[in-house]
Amino acid sequence: MEIPYTVAERPDTGLNNGKIAIWLFLASEVMLFGALFASYLMLRMGAAPGAWPRGDSILNVPLATVNTVVLITSSVTMVMAWASLKRNDFGKFRLYQALTVLAGFGFLGIKYVEYSTKFHHGLFPSTNTFLAIYFTLTGLHGLHVIGGMAVNAYLWGPGSKLWKTSPEHFTNRVENSGLFWHFVDLVWIFLFPILYLL
């Protein structure tokens, strides 16, 4: 038994199954982070005057700026990895995919430095509501980064065997994992100004 349209596009919808699934998944992710951003708004609006600290008075803006650059760069290499497959250049794909995963490690490393400094200074989620939402949002985002890296590493390593048997299917998978990776990037683009700058 074969499930139709796992690789080929269905003529009347113009999409394959995986493509719809990843967009639906991202829609639900938007609702997840959207709810947290809304909570941030409600907590900040309801805070006593002067009780809500400015992000840059507590958080490390230069490090976060570097992290923003790292993550945007990884989105570029992700596209390059996918484009290499489209151009039938598997070697280039391996290179760019590896760079994407490495950039993920770089991001997490910098995040680790930030977190441990906070803990060192006695700043925890229980300290105040700003730090609570900071740790929750960046922690959940960090988990998404780890998830994206796991999928990308799998597609770089054992998952890439599919390239030999069904290059189109494999390219679709890389495209879908790329869509998720861009989403994770985009969430950070929102997190950075809201938590660090405002």
């Binding site: 925890f124 989620p125 959940l140």
Partner: peptide, 15 residues
């Protein structure tokens, strides 16, 4: 909301 309540219960935050 569940994550935030978990944070409140486990990490002592005050959401």
């Amino acid at each position: 909301a569940g994550i935030m309540q978990l944070m409140d219960r486990v990490a002592g935050s005050s959401f």
